[in-house]
Amino acid sequence: MSSVFRRPPDAERNIDASLYFGNLDPEVTELIMYELFIQFAPLRYLNMPKDRILKTHQGYGFVEFRTVRDADYALDILRGVRLYGKQLKIKKAEPPKSGTSSE
């Protein structure tokens, strides 16, 4: 069952295999981003946060691959790609800031 748009449990997430992407034209859809990313590796999860009322995305999203290597490759190869004329902004996802401290 394909559930790439369904958020996996936090315990199963791999932030190191995740990328942030942004500077998206409003015409870009989750399906287009799914199709773009699977050219480079299978996905575990893809999400583009939506405006609750307008149901439109807000110009950015997150994608999680199966491995760090897959994410690094996608990051490398997608630098400079333009969608609807807008250069894709893409970088490693940052871990959510939590209250945990190692000190």
């Binding site: 399906l31 799914y34 609807y84």
Partner: peptide, 23 residues
Amino acid sequence: EYSNDLSSIRPGKVSSELRKALG
């Protein structure tokens, strides 16, 4: 809701929608 669309999307096959986005 996406499953029908996803089955036709495969690596190495670039749809007209993605082509349009890429120009």
